[in-house]
Simulated assay, not measured.
Amino acid sequence: MAQEGDHVNPGTGAAEPHRTDDVPMPTLTPFPVQAGDPSTRKACRMNRNRPNGCGGPAATPLKRCVSEELARYFDALEGEQPCDLHKMVIGETEQALLQFVLEHTGGNQSRAAQLLGLNRGTLRKKLNYYGIDR
């Protein structure tokens, strides 16, 4: 009896299991690195050497800045529990990042998206979400 995925031989009517051994496997070739490819730049190499791109437990200037601001924020709360802390920190950080990179690129969204490692459509969506003038 034929099961899902089986091939029925039209000559005999018998069910045959689906064969994949006669299907050629694609040959994967490495993506060529172009001269000036951003992945060869110092900044990209530095990010690749960091676990998960975050630099591990060592405090970078950016981590120290965020930690100091969070300490001030918690002090200002005077013991009250924060609400949606992750959303707030990511939103504030992302908004500042987007604004800085747009200014750095002179408002060129294609270049900004490339620097951020985002699709240009995703960048436009984020700019709209944060109300950042393009």
Rank of each mutant, 00 (worst) to 15 (best):
M1E: 09
M1S: 14
A2V: 12
Q3S: 12
Q3T: 11
E4R: 10
E4W: 07
G5K: 03
G5L: 03
G5N: 05
D6E: 13
N9H: 03
N9T: 00
N9G: 00
P10F: 00
T12G: 01
T12P: 04
T12W: 00
G13M: 04
A15K: 03
E16F: 00
E16D: 02
P17D: 00
V23Q: 08
V23N: 05
P24E: 05
M25Y: 10
M25P: 07
T27C: 06
T27A: 13
L28S: 10
L28Y: 14
T29F: 10
T29C: 06
T29L: 13
P32L: 07
P32K: 11
A35H: 11
A35W: 07
D37P: 08
D37T: 07
P38L: 01
P38H: 00
T40R: 13
R41A: 13
A43E: 15
A43T: 15
C44Y: 11
R45E: 15
N47V: 14
R48S: 10
N49F: 09
N49W: 08
N49Q: 14
P51Y: 01
G53P: 07
G53S: 05
C54I: 14
G55Q: 06
G55I: 10
G55H: 08
G55A: 07
G55Y: 06
G56R: 04
G56A: 04
P57K: 07
P57H: 04
P57G: 04
A58W: 08
A58M: 10
A59I: 15
A59S: 12
P61L: 01
K63P: 06
R64Q: 12
C65M: 15
V66Q: 06
V66W: 01
V66Y: 01
S67N: 12
E68I: 06
E69R: 14
R72G: 05
R72D: 12
F74W: 09
F74V: 08
F74P: 02
D75K: 07
A76S: 12
E78A: 14
G79E: 05
E80I: 07
Q81D: 09
C83K: 12
D84K: 15
L85G: 01
H86R: 11
M88S: 07
V89T: 12
I90V: 15
I90T: 11
G91C: 04
E92G: 06
E92F: 08
T93A: 14
Q95F: 02
A96K: 11
L98S: 00
L98G: 00
L98A: 01
F100T: 14
V101M: 01
E103S: 09
H104W: 12
H104C: 06
T105D: 00
S110L: 08
R111P: 03
A112N: 03
A112T: 07
A112L: 03
A112C: 06
A113V: 13
Q114C: 07
L115P: 04
L115M: 13
G117C: 08
R120H: 06
G121A: 10
T122C: 05
L123R: 00
K125L: 08
K125F: 03
K125Q: 13
K126P: 02
K126Y: 03
N128Y: 09
N128G: 07
Y129C: 05
Y129T: 14
Y129P: 02
Y130C: 02
G131H: 05
G131M: 04
I132R: 00
D133L: 09
R134Y: 11
